[in-house]
Amino acid sequence: MGLVRSKWTLGLAGAGLLFIIVIVLAVMFVPRALGFGQAPEQPIAFSHIPHVSKDVAGLECVFCHRTVETGATAGIPSVEQCMFCHRLIGRDNPEVQKLAAAWADERPIDWMRVHRVPDSVHFVHEPHIRGGITCATCHGDVGNMPRVRQAITLRMGDCLACHRQRGAPTECSVCHY
């Protein structure tokens, strides 16, 4: 009897342990699955630093991400827009040469998305910008990243905390529709 019980106990304990391990691993990996901390390699080693830095180009975010104030997505600049400046600037830089080659071939550039939310969420940039949220609130200090990395977890709790704090609506259907 005692033996049987101890076998059961061991089995249960093992199953429980496995369960806990899975949960712990899931908790560790979910932010990663959402992209947190990741800085995927891009087809062109683009750095925001010279573009944003006041000492160099000093561009505003909306100069390139043109639809952030009007649409759902901030918008990836077109190759043509990059070439407005890079026709003249940085022509010796091998990375700019990749850009020029794409432009010469009329070929789009396949950037890797860094920031994203699950498919069940409809995130629209426009009302957030209108509400005075800075880009850095969700994207971190992109202007100082040599390669863009997701600096904020962008989990639902983060969204809700901010929405509560600012009195923004928190009904499910605001984002999940």
Binding site: L25, R32, A33, I76, V79, W103, I109, W111, M112, R116
Partner: peptide, 27 residues
């Protein structure tokens, strides 16, 4: 083990591609 278990959780690379248009869309 971790890699095997959680590789399935990662998003396939093709879903992360975001293509820049060649020309200015407004034009």
């Amino acid at each position: 083990l971790g890699a095997v278990v959680f590789a399935g959780c990662a998003v396939p690379k093709r879903e992360l591609l975001v293509e820049s248009p060649v020309r200015m869309p407004e034009d």
